[in-house]
Design a binder for these strands. Structure first.
Lengths: 112, 112
DNA sequence: ACTTCATTTCACATATTTGTTAAATAACCA
DNA sequence: TGGTTATTTAACAAATATGTGAAATGAAGT
């Protein structure tokens, strides 16, 4: 039930409704009805969004009587942050080295 | 040409081919043919992937004769990292506070 | 001008996503 | 048992995404 592949996580987070749900869950657990309340969509739609988030490993769900409270998981968010930051800084360092090299001997720029 | 909305950026990064292209571009500029080489898809497919990345603000493209070298942009990656890390740490702090509260007076757990 | 190389656009097929309404579960309450 | 509340599943429609092969564009080389 926790695939946790970056593909699936990023796809899950690319939907604004789901990202808002994740934002809401960062403030604490919530039930399906509570999560659905701010959005102009029907409950089945929310239910499917939650299933997508669960499949991505971004949430877990408990059962507490009729309620099924959702809880955020940290790991996939950490992986997203790590991947983006790693890629970003790799390129940043490349740019720094390039700049240093250009400073050493003069060149013309190609990207305006 | 640079929408830079988190939606669009995350959707762009959710495709494994595109994420691999971004990874490749973190090592330096490359042309369309160079980017296409590792993948078992046709050039039109790569061309469309690049258009998606450009539309997300993740790359820029120069024209250098027949070549159209692609270059990575830092900003959207930084935004992704910042959003994920912000959300993650918000929930982490919530959990810490909850734990502290539970340590203060005893309770039973609800999530196994 | 003709050819070649790099890249894009077109037209199309298929698969996936997102939403809807109506019906089905599941647990609680009277 | 029957009724209400919370949530999910089923069946379907519309929009979007991804890939292909064939043709078009654009710049360079001869």
């Amino acid at each position: 039930m926790k695939s946790d592949q970056l593909d699936v996580v990023l796809a899950a987070l690319s939907d604004p409704t789901r990202r808002a749900i994740v934002g809401r869950l960062a403030e604490g657990e919530a039930t399906v009805l509570e999560l659905a309340e701010p959005f102009p969509v029907t409950l089945p739609a929310i239910s499917r969004h939650l299933k997508v988030l669960e499949h991505a490993g971004l949430i877990t769900r408990a059962r507490n009587g009729k309620h099924r409270p959702c809880r955020l998981r940290l790991e996939p968010l950490a992986e997203v942050a790590a991947w983006a930051e790693h890629t970003r800084s790799a390129w940043e360092h490349r740019l720094d080295r390039l700049e240093a090299h250009l400073a050493a001997d003069q060149h013309e720029t190609e990207h305006p």
